[in-house]
């Protein structure tokens, strides 16, 4: 019997991890976040319940992992596009949020409950939990990069200190707007993002 080499082992591990996330997301979406147990996730993913714990300690960790992937996906899609590199700031920010929403779209119901869950003080998904903070820093750091490469370089620009944080709050607002948007293909969100980003960037450029 041949032992699988290290590379294959890593790939297999990643595949199981991905399977667990997919199973969990499907259950979060259909049964709701609270009603989903790690046992059910394991059953759906076709692994033993104990295996789940080799990858994630809790279902909150799975959810958080999903959001990490979502943010990475959105950042990558902006970085990958050669055209966006020279695009105006409002378009880059639009592209970032739009690819986040596109990633979240299949799990809309779960996103709504996750947002409520995140407001619970002790929650691991909470905005101030250690892990969620790291995710937020990753996101804000990237937004900071976008601002820096797009805004005129001046010696002193206090606005840049708080701007990425303000953008994070704007993003949460946009997410709420998106969740409540009942227009066909969520076109109201597109129009909302377009007009608010255009106005917002114009104001920032003036100050």
């Amino acid at each position: 019997m041949r032992r699988p080499d290290a590379g294959r082992r890593v790939t297999k591990k990643a595949a199981i991890q991905q399977r667990l996330v997919a199973a969990a997301l499907a259950l979060f979406q259909s049964k709701g976040f609270d009603a989903t147990t790690t046992k059910a996730i394991a059953r759906k993913a076709g692994v033993a319940e104990g295996t789940v714990f080799n990858y994630f300690r809790t279902k909150e960790d799975i959810a958080l992992y999903f959001f990490e992937q979502e943010v990475e996906h959105a950042i990558e899609s902006v970085q990958r596009s050669p055209r966006l590199r020279t695009a105006p700031l409002e378009e880059k920010l639009f592209a970032l949020i739009q690819s986040q929403f596109a990633y979240l779209a299949p799990y809309e119901r779960f996103i709504g409950t996750a947002l409520v869950e995140a407001l619970r003080p002790a929650s691991k998904l909470g905005f101030f939990s250690h892990k969620a903070q790291a995710l937020r820093h990753r996101y804000i750091g990237f937004v900071q990069e976008l601002f820096e490469e797009s805004l005129p370089k001046r010696k002193f620009m206090p606005v840049q200190w708080w701007l990425p944080d303000a953008f994070w709050i704007y993003y949460l607002g946009a997410l709420l707007f998106w969740l409540h948007d009942t227009s066909s293909r969520k076109q109201n969100t597109l129009a909302f993002l377009d007009s608010t980003l255009r106005i917002g960037v114009a104001i920032v450029k003036r100050t």
Binding site: R83, L84, A87, E91, Q98, S195
Partner: peptide
Amino acid sequence: APPMHPTLMRAQFSGS
């Protein structure tokens, strides 16, 4: 109507 940048135009186009 406000002009659409390529990202928004593409979203509208492929959405529709």
